[in-house]
Nucleic acid binder design. Structure first.
Length: 478
RNA sequence: GGUCCCAUCGUCUAGUGGCCUAGGACACCACCCUCUCAAGGUGGAGACACGGGUUCGAACCCCGUUGGGACUGCCA
């Protein structure tokens, strides 16, 4: 493939894969797919203090899970160090960079003494002609000249006067290249044509452009700065205080297609009133110019709704296979009272469609169906449910249980028959079906809510149901 | 403090000068459906931050104010 645009997603592996990073990655991916371009994955791991191999693996796994396949990479920025060093040397020898031995405190003190309004670096070492040495960082010389204009595909032109740009550091005293340098050098050598990234990087873009021009006459890449994702306090999502790890959403039972769909709509809309749309359609509809300017709140409630929609759209077989790992997890964490997983799953398969339309996350399946996995004498009664239905409504509950035990012994064992049997027991007690089924539900599932009761009874089998009704009777009587 | 970005219902958004008494979705409320819970259906409440311009006409264009945010690191 040549000729098409080249974009890159360039995360730094310093933690779990962030929903904001996922959104950035997705937009790059959509753009590349839409334009028939190339999507490059580049890992910016130059900060050796904070980077860890496991985070890198996490990024790759999460991207694969979301279906964001990359065409090149992952390239490790750390392995491109020779290129960066060469660029550094070239900038220095060209006179575009100089060594500086100022420390923070000195600069601050000078700025204060000079009453300088912009408290950044003051250019103290610019003309001192220092050579490389201990404690000497390399700074890029911004100098005078025309303002730097970032042509942003989303925001239009953003103008930066050069005197508002400090001479920024491009290499540490030990020679390590820093972000703006490494990032720019890599974009040049990877022939990146479109830089699509978070708005937090907008202030560093003019600096990158200066480095870019000092290193090559090639045309600048086009830039597109995506609006931030924010929390309820409208602040940039933070790994420390906000629930942002893609891994966590995955383990809670969110579907990758729902996640991608939701993320795509955070800052972009196809323009008609459609929200739920398949990936392929997002690709054809995607236009980077249509991305919003303002920050978006990551609303888990809406994500859950999307997830529910996607779960309900699954075939039953697909739902079953996707839900099974979550059932296994619930099962293994509840081992103190469960029976065999295999027998439970047999029952689950029978009511799967009924569960499917009631959950918004795959992890909701276990609490809704755990009664299928427990031994008949170990139903875990929810204490509030027992109190409300069995204790407060003791007379009705006792009547329902004994009536049901009597009727369920004989007769057809299907949902319709069980429903009418329950109705008739209820009628004798002056109870409508809604009230009548409650004690049976608690006796059988331990809860007041769950999948449709009569189908659940069928899945459980006559023997188990009778046994559970009798256990409840005993507990109630005793 | 400085530089830059942003501003439509609580939230995500549609809207690119007349189609807007501003549309959709989530959340919320009510009702219907109903064996519980969901799902579904119907209805409801709910927004153009403010002030000036420009124009026959402004949510849309310009300026200002206010508010929010990002950056301001020898992190990325």
């Amino acid at each position: 493939m040549s000729g098409g645009p080249r974009v890159r997603f360039a995360p730094s592996p310093t933690g779990y894969f962030h929903v904001g990073s996922a959104r950035t990655s997705l937009y790059n991916w959509l753009f590349a797919r839409k334009m028939g371009g190339t999507f490059v994955l580049r890992i910016e791991d130059t900060d050796t203090e904070r980077n860890r191999r496991e985070w890198l693996d996490g990024i790759c796994e999460s991207m694969a899970w979301l279906g964001l396949n990359w065409d090149e990479g992952p390239y490790l920025q750390s392995e491109r160090r020779p290129d960066h060093i060469a660029a550094l040397q070239r900038l220095h020898s060209q006179g575009d960079a100089y060594y500086c031995d100022c420390v923070r405190e000195e600069v601050d003190k000078r700025n204060e003494a000079n009453g300088r309004k912009t408290p950044g670096y003051d250019g103290f070492c610019r003309d001192r002609g220092l050579e490389a040495g201990e404690g000497r960082a390399l700074r890029f010389k911004v100098g005078a000249g025309d303002p730097v204009v970032v042509h942003d595909l989303i925001r239009g032109d953003v103008v930066f006067e050069r005197d508002t740009l400090d001479d920024f550091v491009i290499a540490k005293p030990d020679g390590s290249p820093l972000f703006v340098l490494a990032n720019t050098v890599d974009d040049i050598s990877m022939r990146i044509t479109h830089v699509i990234r978070g708005e937090d990087l907008l202030p560093s873009t003019p600096k990158g452009m200066l480095v870019y021009r000092a290193l090559t006459d090639a045309e600048y890449p086009a830039f597109a700065h995506l609006p931030m994702l924010v929390n309820e306090k409208r602040q940039k999502l933070s790994k420390r205080r906000d629930p942002v790890a893609i891994e966590d959403y995955r383990s809670k039972g969110f579907l990758p297609e729902a996640m991608v769909n939701y993320l795509a709509l955070l800052g972009w809309s196809p323009g008609n009133d459609r929200e739920i749309l398949p990936l392929a359609e997002m690709v054809t509809e995607f236009k980077i110019e249509r991305v919003n300017h303002s920050p978006a709140f990551f609303d888990v409630a809406k994500l859950e709704h999307f997830n529910g929609e996607y779960i309900r759209a699954l075939s039953v077989e697909d739902f079953l296979s996707r839900a099974e790992p979550y059932l296994r997890e619930g099962y293994s964490e509840a081992q103190h009272y469960v029976g065999s997983f295999e027998s439970g799953i047999v029952g689950f398969k029978q009511i799967a469609p009924l569960v499917q339309e009631r959950v918004s996350k795959l992890s909701d399946a276990w609490p809704m169906a755990d009664f299928l996995f427990v031994e008949d004498d170990s139903v875990a009664y929810d204490s509030a449910a027992w109190e409300k239905v069995m204790v407060n409504g003791k007379v009705a509950a006792a009547g329902m249980l004994s009536g049901a035990v009597e009727l369920f012994e004989l007769g057809d064992w299907d949902a319709e028959a069980l429903k009418s049997a329950t109705s008739s027991v209820g009628e004798k007690l002056g109870l409508k079906l809604g009230k009548a089924q409650a004690p049976l539900r608690v006796a059988i599932t331990g809860k007041t809510v769950g999948p449709p009761l009569f189908e659940a009874m069928v899945a459980l089998g006559r023997e188990s149901v009778l046994s559970r009704l009798k256990s409840a009777q005993e507990k109630l009587g005793g």
